[in-house]
Each structure stands twice: as structure tokens, then as C-alpha cells.
Amino acid sequence: MTHSRWSDLERPPLNATALRRAVVTPESVWTALDVVDSTGSTNSDLAARAAGGAAEGAVLVAEEQTAGRGRLDRRWTAPARSGLFFSVLLRPGAATADGRGPVPVHRWGWLPLLAGVATATALSRTAGVDTALKWPNDLLVTVDGEERKAGGILAERQGADAVIIGLGVNVSLHADELPVPTATSLALAGAPGTDRDPLLRAVLRSLADWYGAWRAADGDPAASRLQQTYAAGCATLGREVRAELPGGGEIAGRAVNVDGDGRLVIATPEGEQPVGAGDVVHLRPAP
């Protein structure tokens, strides 16, 4: 029998035409949506389009990524059509059509956290699976009483005014397909359905809503309620953690806050220390 993209009935392809009709509307930030069968990295592909002048709101979705990237150059791979693998192009450094000025660069660090809030909110509502955030960019769900990673976010600056945000969410992966024991999928977390079309629509709509509120507040995380909402959904806060810093070194203590710059504040015997980048290990189980 000839293999086709419809051979795996559990994982049908996305309907690009219906998705485009649903999310690329005059009132939305999304201006274009393309679905490709396979690519190395949607972030890399969209970066090339951004460099060529692509408008804000371009969305690139891949049914399969062969060289997907996470933070610290980690690889992200999964079977074809088993998850959501996509990137969006935002231009917070450009003025908007209605005359709103650029968002100050020092506030752009909130964009990956904004994407986390938007995605977790959409997945919780649409997939019926409680989704929490691990600072700075992981999406966590609980399987058999243990927190596991179901998705991740990678934000990369592109040029003077743009940021590309890549998102990967494991949707229908089986236990024997997981890349590492600490990973999981929405299906393994008990999601009643794994239809990716409504999930992608929900995430993009939520992301557009949060980005619009953030831009309207000139990127202010408090005025847009982003800071409060992130803290409420962040599983890292209140935990004993170890932050492994870029270039070596670590900070251990209790995660007590996410400050106005999006940094994780860790209370140590020497006082509170903000961490702007690094890997965070949860040392104490969630309460």
C-alpha cells in the first residue's frame, strides 16, 4: 500500500485553508498562515522571511520538524503530525497601523512569558488538561502525580524590530515515542481529544489577545496583567529550586517572585537574587 499523509488516521494533517480562514481576519494580528509538511526549523524559516520584510503576524506551521530547536541549542523532535510545531513573527519594535509607538526594548523579554501564559490558558480550556508554567519557557502537565514537560517556547530576536516565537507542544505522542522520560503529551495527560486544528486556533487566538493587551499597555507587564497572570500559573514559584546559570555557576533557594523584568527572584541565605537566564530545577514537589 502506498504511504500517504492520511495513512495514520490517529494523526490527520492540519487543514491549512480552514485554519487560515479562522485566524487570519481583519481584526487579528495574524496576517498570513502557512502549513508545510516538513522543515528543519520553523523559527529559522520564519527568520529568513522576516529578514526579507515579512509583515508582523506571519505564522508558519510544520507537520514535522527535523531540526527543531529549544533553549541552549537543545533539539526538539517528534513524529510527524504528533504535535503543534509553529512559529510566529511579531514586530514589537515597529509602530502600529493605529499610531501606537514601538514597545521599549527592555520589555521584550516578557514575550516568551506572554507566549507561555497564552498557550497554557488555551490548552487548559481547549484540551481539558491543566497546564502550568515552569520558568522561563516550559509547559507542564501532570501525569500519574508527576509534573512533566509537554511543550516549550523559544523566542529569538530578529533584526532591529522583530521577535520570532517558536512553540512546540506534544499532542498525541505515545509513551514509547517520548524523547526523554521527563516528557509527556496531552494525550498521556488525559486529554479527551487530540484534534490539533482547534488546539492551534485556540493558542493563536489567545496569543493574539495577550499580545494586543501587552502592546496596548506599552509592554508594561503589570498594566497588561501579564505579570500577575504569569505568577498565578507558574509552578516554579514557592518551590525550592536550583538555577543553573549560563557559563557555569548556580543559585539555590526558594523561588519567590517574577519581577518586572521577567526575571525569577530566588531567596537565598545571602538575600534575594534575580535570575534572568538559566535552567531551573524544581527541588521540592509541588504543594
Rank of each mutant, 00 (worst) to 15 (best):
P79K: 09
A80T: 09
A80C: 11
R81Y: 04
S82P: 00
G83P: 00
L84N: 07
L84E: 07
F85A: 14
F86S: 08
F86W: 15
F86R: 10
S87L: 05
L89R: 02
L89E: 14
L89G: 09
L89P: 08
L90E: 01
L90C: 09
R91D: 09
R91L: 06
R91M: 03
P92S: 05
G93H: 12
G93L: 08
G93C: 07
A94C: 03
A94V: 01
A95M: 05
T96S: 08
T96W: 04
T96A: 07
A97N: 05
D98V: 01
D98I: 00
G99T: 04
G99Y: 05
R100C: 01
G101C: 01
P102T: 02
P102R: 01
V103M: 11
P104F: 08
P104Q: 07
P104E: 05
P104R: 11
V105I: 10
V105C: 11
H106W: 07
H106F: 07
R107Q: 14
R107M: 12
W108G: 00
G109P: 06
W110N: 05
L111H: 09
P112N: 13
L114V: 12
L114W: 10
A115H: 09
A115F: 10
G116P: 09
G116S: 03
V117N: 13
V117P: 14
V117L: 15
A118F: 11
A118T: 12
T119A: 13
A120G: 11
T121Q: 15
T121E: 15
T121I: 02
T121G: 14
A122W: 12
A122K: 11
A122Q: 05
R125E: 15
R125H: 14
T126F: 02
A127K: 12
A127Q: 11
G128K: 07
G128W: 09
V129T: 03
T131W: 06
T131I: 08
T131E: 06
T131P: 01
T131V: 10
A132M: 14
L133K: 12
L133I: 12
K134W: 11
W135E: 03
W135R: 04
W135V: 00
W135Y: 04
W135P: 01
P136S: 15
N137L: 05
D138T: 00
L139E: 01
L139P: 13
L140C: 03
V141L: 11
T142P: 01
T142V: 13
T142Q: 15
V143T: 10
D144Q: 08
D144C: 02
D144A: 10
D144T: 06
G145P: 06
G145Q: 10
E146P: 00
E146L: 14
E146Y: 12
E147K: 15
E147D: 15
E147R: 15
R148K: 15
R148F: 11
R148Q: 13
R148V: 01
